[in-house]
Amino acid sequence: MIYYRVAFCVEQATVENIEHIQSHGSQAITQQAVWKWRSTLLTSPHALFTLLRAYSYIPKDNIRVFFASSETEMDDMLARQNAGQISSSVSADQFLAGKRINTIDVKRLEFELSMEADHDEPYTFTLPMSIAERMAWTALLQKRQRGELES
């Protein structure tokens, strides 16, 4: 099941871009939106559309629709959005134009962002067992060596 929740942009915070400072030696200041919840957890797209219609007087770029599989994940996505990181949200304009995030994409993003997985484990490549898969890997390797694929 997918849950929906609406957040409003309540202010623009000034943020220093540390990466820009380190690479260019100069300070880069950017504006980043700060989002706060303006709805409870919703379980149906119909309820979400009704809520967005009620907020029709607010500029659509000041409204974001968040998607998650639980209330805990929803709060994590809001925190990520406020930190300028990837989240499972779209602007109200994008949502009303038909952009949706399906259940599989939401769960995949939550899994990839979770701390449960051990991302520090080294990966050891082994060739596949079937000849067809081995030939496909060999063809990719040859394209890579010829410079036809980027690393």
Rank of each mutant, 00 (worst) to 15 (best):
V90Q: 03
V90R: 05
V90H: 03
S91I: 03
S91A: 06
S91H: 04
A92E: 01
A92M: 04
D93C: 09
D93W: 10
Q94S: 08
F95S: 02
L96Y: 12
L96C: 12
A97H: 15
A97M: 15
G98I: 10
G98P: 05
G98R: 08
G98V: 07
K99G: 06
K99F: 14
K99C: 11
I101H: 04
I101T: 07
I101N: 03
T103F: 08
T103G: 12
T103I: 13
I104V: 15
I104D: 15
D105H: 05
D105A: 10
D105E: 12
D105Q: 11
V106K: 00
V106S: 02
K107N: 05
K107L: 08
K107A: 07
K107Y: 04
R108P: 01
R108S: 08
L109Q: 05
L109K: 00
E110D: 09
E110V: 01
E110F: 02
F111E: 08
F111T: 04
E112F: 11
E112Y: 14
S114Q: 06
S114L: 07
S114N: 01
S114F: 02
M115V: 07
M115I: 12
E116C: 10
E116I: 05
A117P: 08
D118V: 03
D118G: 01
D118K: 00
H119R: 09
H119F: 11
H119G: 06
D120Q: 12
E121A: 07
P122W: 00
P122V: 04
P122L: 02
Y123M: 13
Y123A: 09
Y123P: 01
Y123N: 05
Y123I: 01
T124Q: 14
F125L: 08
L127W: 06
L127H: 06
L127P: 00
P128R: 00
S130I: 01
S130G: 09
S130V: 01
I131T: 11
I131W: 09
E133R: 14
E133S: 13
E133G: 09
E133I: 07
R134G: 03
M135A: 15
M135G: 08
W137D: 12
W137N: 11
T138K: 12
T138Q: 10
T138D: 12
T138V: 08
